[in-house]
């Protein structure tokens, strides 16, 4: 099973499962590989000694929908072709994006160093024309070793009435992704927000500062290793501990 994987990036160790078993659609087997991003223990979301269900020993791999194979169907092929053609016309050495199609939405997984070139081609390409970027959304997958931080961009082509998604990853140890503010100025605040909440540094951003949290805030609140609450409530003469340290009865 693991012999036929031609990786572009180092994969974390863990059970690789064929897409057919894990794809929620359970469609005819796409031969694309599936990437494990975590493991779930037990069945009921209970951890530790509280789990008296007897299912505590169960482990399940957390996998996301696998890579799609051509033909993608509909306008997906048209966009993918136009993108590849557009990239080849340029000088830069850009890897062809991996494509995932799930629930009728298409995602292009691109290498982070390719992002600015791809964004520019997507905006300006004749058959692409993705004029509007709906911002960037960070996602933190702590168990996705080597690519813990994901940045997800939603692009809209008003000309052709199409939506696509770009997904870029970077490791926790080197949280850098190139900024695409020069292509999509709207991402100015969105990238600041993602930096604020996840600590992803967008190289080339004109002024990457915190936007929602105070300037001197320690940590990046929406990372999974940042607890909910995390800070105590201070009163004059009293201190209520943060929610995650309070006594619980569950």
């Amino acid at each position: 099973m693991s012999g036929d994987q031609s990786d572009v990036k180092p994969e974390p160790k863990g059970p690789e499962q064929p897409a057919v078993e894990q794809s929620p659609d359970n469609v005819p087997a796409p031969p694309g590989q599936v990437h494990q991003v975590g493991e779930r223990h037990g069945m009921f979301g209970v951890r530790g000694t509280g789990d008296t269900s007897g299912y505590g020993g169960l482990t399940q791999a957390i996998v996301y929908p696998g890579e799609a194979q051509r033909p993608y169907g509909g306008w997906y092929d048209e966009v993918a072709d136009a993108l590849v053609t557009g990239l080849k016309a340029g000088e830069a050495d850009v890897a062809e994006p991996r494509v995932v199609i799930h629930r009728g939405e298409i995602t292009f997984h691109v290498r982070r160093e390719d992002l600015p070139v791809i964004a520019r081609v997507l905006r300006d390409g004749d058959n692409l024309r993705f004029e509007l970027c709906s911002g960037v959304s960070g996602v933190h997958y702590p168990a996705d070793a080597g690519r813990e931080l994901h940045a997800v961009y939603h692009l809209l082509s008003m000309t052709y009435n199409r939506r696509i998604r770009l997904e870029v990853t970077c490791p926790d140890a080197d949280p850098h992704i190139p900024s695409i503010v020069d292509t999509y100025p709207t991402n100015d605040w969105h990238e600041r927000e993602t930096y604020d909440m996840f600590g992803i540094i967008f190289d080339g951003h004109p002024g990457l500062t915190r936007i929602l949290m105070p300037d001197d805030w320690p940590g990046h609140p929406q990372r999974k290793d940042y607890p909910l609450g995390g800070i105590p409530v201070e009163y004059k003469g009293a201190r209520v501990p943060p929610p995650d340290e309070r006594r619980t009865y569950s």
Partner: peptide
């Protein structure tokens, strides 16, 4: 089921969209 979607609506102020990510659990992953 695990996956991610983005379904925007036309709010009075413009495109309002939620990027919803699930890891297959009973809570939103993001």
């Amino acid at each position: 089921p695990a996956g991610q979607v983005y379904v925007p609506v036309e709010s009075p102020r413009g495109e309002l969209g939620a990027h919803v990510v699930s890891d297959g659990g009973t809570r939103p992953f993001r």
